[in-house]
């Protein structure tokens, strides 16, 4: 099944990676559940995660080799582009679920618990003392679920983090322009700064979490405010981690001399992803921290 026999189409050889991926994911999820249930690390979890790392290196490695060997036509390139685009769209929808939960709580269910609409009875009979104020510094049932002492403000760390991410989008675009102009120095510089900014963002985010847990009493289990706060910012932070790692890989590839001025889909895919992560942050900043 050589490439040539398919005319102008490219069809990859049979590949072991899908099976590796399946085994890796299955091992990881069983490990994750066992860890949760036992309350201590199950060996399967790190093994599974290592396998996922191996999968990424192996699979993407072979795709990079094929690409460098010039096997990909413009058509394959377009398939990859479509794939990445719609993958990002699916990520948008994943975040939409959590934003939806946030809006539902803020606009509907919390006011209802406070007696709004035709829900007076719930309020009256279950939690008459509850007042609907966002962010919730008092939960309907404060004995069962301890509310945070203070809310996370929008100034300070979150504002700095916003500036950092916005700047990183600019430096990444700068790198992209440099790549297209054939200026490798600026390309590497721009990418390097972007990776650095990504790392700083993550460090500050950890800083903020420590502050929230230790000083504000704002935790995952402090009611709907903490739940939405940590799941939204947490998944965003996870995506920043992924994005930074991907940028790092691209930086290493750039240093190795990969990519040309008009053929650099790997770079673009990661750039799209980074901008997406950036936009999600803006939504977070506005609706979780600010308003």
């Amino acid at each position: 099944m050589s490439t040539a026999s398919h005319g102008e189409y490219y069809i990859p050889e049979p590949s072991k990676w899908p099976i590796v991926g399946t085994v890796a994911l299955t091992t990881s999820v069983i490990g994750a559940v066992n860890t949760i249930h036992a309350g201590e690390m199950s060996l399967l979890l790190p093994v599974g995660l290592l396998m996922i790392a191996y999968l990424f290196f192996g699979w993407f490695g072979s795709v990079i080799d094929e690409s460098m060997a010039g096997k990909y036509s413009a058509q394959v390139d377009k398939s990859f582009r479509l794939g990445m685009m719609w993958f990002i769209f699916s990520e948008v929808m994943f975040f939409a679920a959590f934003f939806g939960a946030l809006f539902y709580a803020r606009v509907l269910s919390v006011p209802w618990l406070g007696g709004a609409g035709n829900n007076a009875a719930t309020h009256e009979f279950l939690w008459p003392a509850f007042e609907a104020v966002w962010p919730l510094l008092s939960n309907p049932d404060n004995t069962k679920i301890v509310a945070p002492a203070e809310a996370m403000g929008a100034m300070g760390l979150p504002a700095i983090n916003t500036a950092i991410l916005l700047t990183s989008s600019v430096t990444l675009t700068w790198a992209h322009h440099a790549l297209r102009a054939g200026n490798r120095l600026h390309l590497n510089l721009g990418l390097g700064i972007t990776v650095l900014l990504g790392c700083i963002f993550l460090v500050l985010q950890v800083e903020e979490y420590i502050h929230a847990y230790n000083e504000l009493g704002l935790t995952m289990s402090s009611g709907i405010y903490g739940s939405t706060f940590f799941l939204l910012t947490g998944f965003h932070g996870f995506h920043v981690t992924m994005g930074t790692t991907m940028l790092l890989v691209i930086l290493i590839r750039c240093l190795k001399g990969h990519f040309t001025a008009d053929n650099h889909f790997g770079f673009e895919a990661v750039a799209w992803y980074w901008h997406f992560v950036d936009v999600v942050w803006l939504g977070l900043y506005i609706f979780v921290y600010w308003l």
């Binding site: 994943f94 269910s109 618990l113 679920i145 995952m220 009611g223 709907i224 739940s227 940590f230």
Partner: peptide
């Protein structure tokens, strides 16, 4: 995927997406 993730954290990590006592629903 989002809704089962909320289930997971409600079950195991103390979130209250679906628990009115914590302001969820």
């Amino acid at each position: 995927a989002g809704v089962v993730t909320m289930m997971l954290t409600d079950r195991n990590f103390g979130t209250s997406f679906f628990d009115a006592a914590g302001g969820g629903d």
